[in-house]
């Protein structure tokens, strides 16, 4: 059994909703996502900004209430769970945020930020809490004397470590990493990524690693899912994605990753136009207006996510396993 199974998850944000105004439509931030995450793996989730990847991460944890679907975590549907039970369940699943400035309460000491989960779940109090927090600070590369300081006394990278320690405090199994390195300097990015990998091995953690940076995801992920306009368009093992990407969107994304080797010439696929509005997404395959391989069928029928051998899923009429065009 997978640790986490997501079935047809949807989150539509209503537009122009009010007491007297009629519902004018919805932003389909997450629109029918199916995913499984195995225990101990890192699943990378990549997409442009606004494609719904952060919303997906937060909807899984029910930090945003989904519109529909199922999230089965350790055999239990989180979406059908009453609040009280869900609060206990939150011990098992945590989140690390993108912005290390906004994600720490400026009015609380580091020790209280990291130890809050311990108190909420009554895991440790007083002296035991202090000891456990100091242990956590050591684990993420901070020191004991940081316990009584305030977040504004730290750099971005250190703050991100505090955020990681807070997530680890309750001994979670699954952590959503919501662009944890996107706002850090490149030199600090590597440190944080190595820390996350180290912790994964030590504590047998499972990650959903959200990023718009394919380079970062390549390094840390076992499998990678590509998201476009609220849907998963391709999913495969990390190597497969980078070497045998099928979906035209994935290939365009990959061609945008800079390669340090100047002698290697590569084909640059430049996408035309902007990401369409998720309020009124294109018919059929939502990618068809920007796709240079589109066929007659593409704007009529939505391609399902179909699998090649080895769990390589592609949602495309032209490059999918069952060609229809």
């Amino acid at each position: 059994m997978s640790l986490l199974e997501i079935r047809d998850l949807r989150k539509h944000f209503p537009v122009g909703e009010g007491l007297f105004s009629r519902n004018k439509g919805a932003v389909k931030a997450v629109d029918g996502v199916n995913l499984t995450v195995e225990e101990g793996e890192t699943l990378g989730l990549v997409g442009e900004s606004g494609c719904g990847k952060s919303t997906l991460g937060r909807t899984i944890l029910r930090l945003i209430e989904p519109t529909g679907g199922e999230v089965i975590f350790q055999g239990k549907n989180l979406l059908a769970m009453p609040q009280r039970e869900l609060r206990d369940m939150r011990r098992q699943m945590q989140i690390i945020f993108q912005d290390p400035y906004a994600s720490l309460n400026p009015r609380m000491r580091v020790g209280d930020i990291v130890g809050e989960g311990l108190e909420i779940h009554k895991l440790a109090k007083g002296k035991a809490k202090r000891e456990r927090v100091i242990e956590l600070l050591h684990q993420v590369g901070l020191r004991e004397e940081h316990y009584d300081r305030y977040p504004h006394e730290f750099s971005g990278g250190q703050r991100q470590r505090i955020g990681i320690a807070r997530a680890l405090a309750v001994n979670p199994k699954f952590i959503v990493c919501d662009e944890p390195v996107s706002s850090l300097d490149v030199s600090i990015q590597a440190q944080i990524i190595n820390l996350l990998q180290e912790l994964q091995e030590k504590m047998h953690l499972t990650y959903l690693f959200i990023s718009h940076d394919l380079r970062v995801v390549e390094h840390i992920s076992h499998r990678v899912a590509i998201m476009y306009l609220g849907k998963i368009v391709e999913i495969a093992k990390s190597d497969t994605i980078y070497q045998e990407a099928k979906h035209p969107y994935t290939r365009a994304l990959l061609s945008a990753v800079p390669i340090p080797d100047m002698s290697k010439k590569k084909e640059r696929v430049v996408l035309e136009g902007d990401v369409p509005s998720p309020v009124n997404p294109p018919s059929g395959c939502t990618f068809h207006p920007r796709c240079s391989y589109r066929e007659a069928i593409c704007d009529k029928i939505e391609p399902p996510l179909e699998f090649y051998a080895g769990g390589h899923g592609v949602s495309c009429h032209v490059f999918g396993p069952n060609k229809r065009a």
């Binding site: 937060r58 944890l61 930090l63 609060r87 206990d88 939150r90 011990r91 699943m93 945590q94 989140i95 945020f97 993108q98 912005d99 906004a102 994600s103 720490l104 309460n105 809050e116 989960g117 909420i120 779940h121 955020g163 807070r166 309750v170």
Partner: peptide, 17 residues
């Protein structure tokens, strides 16, 4: 909207907390 409020929810804080 502050992420640290979202973080508190993800830790399992009650609304009153």
């Amino acid at each position: 909207q502050n992420e640290y409020v979202v973080a508190a929810r993800s830790l399992g804080s009650t609304s009153s907390h």
